[in-house]
Every structure is written in structure tokens, then in C-alpha cells.
Amino acid sequence: MSAPAAPTIAGGPVTPLDAPSHRRGDRIFAGLARGAGVLILVLLAGVALFLVVESVPALTASSSELPQGKSFAHYVGPLAFGTAFAAAIALLIAAPVSIGVALFISHYSPRRLAGVLGYLIDLLAAVPSVVFGLWGIFWLAPQLQPGMAWLGTHLSFIPFFAGPVSATGRTILTAGVVLAVMILPIMTAICREIFLQTPRLHEEAALALGATRWEVVRMSVLPHGRSGVISAAMLGLGRALGETMAVAMVLSVGGGVSVNLISPQNPSTIAANIALQFPESSGVAVNALIATGLVLFVITFLVNFAARAVVARRKDFREGS
């Protein structure tokens, strides 16, 4: 934004020596750069447009033509529920842990270690989702299964643990845990950054009043980072909503709507459903899948937008104060 004005504008009388070639070069280059920017707008408009156009046949088709012989709303409903449910589980687990990890790195660990530890957590973000899927199904699911069996025997009066208990551990709870691990790095990174930006003066104000470390965090670090934490959670939620392969691999799908966390019959998610059904689909079924993709796009768009609004409001607040 601070780029100085083009010299051709600022430079007073243009000498014949530099004029023609330079100005043509400038114009072409500026046009290219501008064109790239416009292309991005076109690309995004294209994404939205193609999804809408390809969805129309599914939205207008009669329910008998659609997969499972249901109307589109009945088709996408349980999927949307599964998507939101799995993402909510992930967020519920990842939010406190990532705040804790971010605090550990920013305020509790020895300063020399902080960088290395942060990098270690960032490494998690580099792991491809198909690897998370393999890990979830072969390592995590068997590890969690006994715990879920215990919940099923002792807490079955709670709807979440009503059973029957999955024998493989491939439940929505496991999928949620995998998703939590996957969104942990991004949430930790954002929280860590904002915690580290806490003005030293505010921390010292608390210290000088005789605050303990936790009281410093409570009085200055957390109030300062509140909106950052919220937007981190929103971004993590957006990731969890859109994550495909890990869920597609881990989750044992039964369809329908259920809040049961430990049964072998789980609602699928939109993204996982597309990944699993698309290769074998043709005709209107493909359109129906694209239409569910559109629904997912809108949901993630709204979540991301909400995150951005939180950040923007914070900026206003800062300038105002």
C-alpha cells in the first residue's frame, strides 16, 4: 500500500529518451499484475458459479431420481448434521488444548525452548490428511475402543453413550479426536501469536500488583487475546468442517441422525460422503453430490466470514481506544 507513485506520474516533464519503451513495459507489467488479481476474482466466482450450475439438476430432480430415493433436503440434512457434529467434537477438544499449548509456549516454557516447541507443533500441520486417516483407523481407534466400551457399560443412560458400542472404535468420537489433532496446530499458532503480542506494560501492571503467573495471564494475556482466540476457534472449525479424507477413512457410516458418540452407526459428513460416493456415481447422483458440496462451501464460507468479522471488530476496538 505504501508503494510510491509511478515515476512517470511523479517525475515532472517526461524526456523523450525514456518515454516510449519504459511506458509500454510499465503498462504491460501493470496489466499483467492487475490481470492476475482479476483472475483470482474470476476463479472464485467460477467456483461458486459452477457449483450452483451443477447443483441445479439435483435441486430440481424428483426424489426418486436422487440417491437413496429421498428429496435433496432429506439427503443433505443428516450429512450436514454429521459434519457439524464431528466438527463440534473436534473444536470442543482442540480449543482448550490449543489454548493451553499456546500459553505453554508463550508464557510457561523456558524462552529458549519456545521456538523449538512451536516448530514441533507446526510439524503436525504438515502431515497429510490421508496419513491422519491411516493413523486414526489403525492406531487411535483401537486405543480409544476400550474407553468407549467402558463408557457404554457405565454411562449408557446418557444419550451420547447409549451404545451399542462399536467393536472397531471407528466412531464419530474417534473421528472428532482425529479432527481435533488436525486443527490443533493452526489454532495453537494463532493463539500463540496473539498471546506473545500482549503489551509488556499490561503484564507488568499485573505483576507490580503482586499477581502470580496465572493472575497475570488472567488479567492481561487472556483479555488481550480474547478475539484472537475466538477467530482461531472459527478458523479451526472451518478446517474441521471441510476435512475429508481422515473422516472418510475413520468413520464407520450408518446414516441417519444420531448423537451417539460410540456406536458403529454414525452419521457421515458432507465432505467424506462426496469422497466416498463420487468415484462410483454418475448422472444426477453426481449433481446431488456437487449440491452437497455447495452446502459445505456456504457453511465454511459463513464460518470463515464470522471469524473475519471478529478480527475486524477487534481492529476497530483497538483504534478506538
Partner: peptide
């Protein structure tokens, strides 16, 4: 380098939106 006023703001906003596109939606596109 060219900042570009309103178009620049739109591009920035849309780049932000693009970062949030689920990968499966990109595949569908």
C-alpha cells in the same frame, strides 16, 4: 506495488475466502 484501491481490497478479501475453501470443494470445482 500497485495497491489498486477498491479492486485491491476485493482481491485481498477473496484471497482470504479462498484460504477457507475445503479441498473437496476445490475438487468438485
Amino acid at each position: 506495488e500497485y495497491s489498486g484501491g477498491r479492486l485491491g481490497r476485493w482481491v485481498t478479501l477473496m484471497v482470504d475466502v479462498m484460504t477457507g475453501i475445503p479441498s473437496i470443494v476445490a475438487g468438485l470445482f
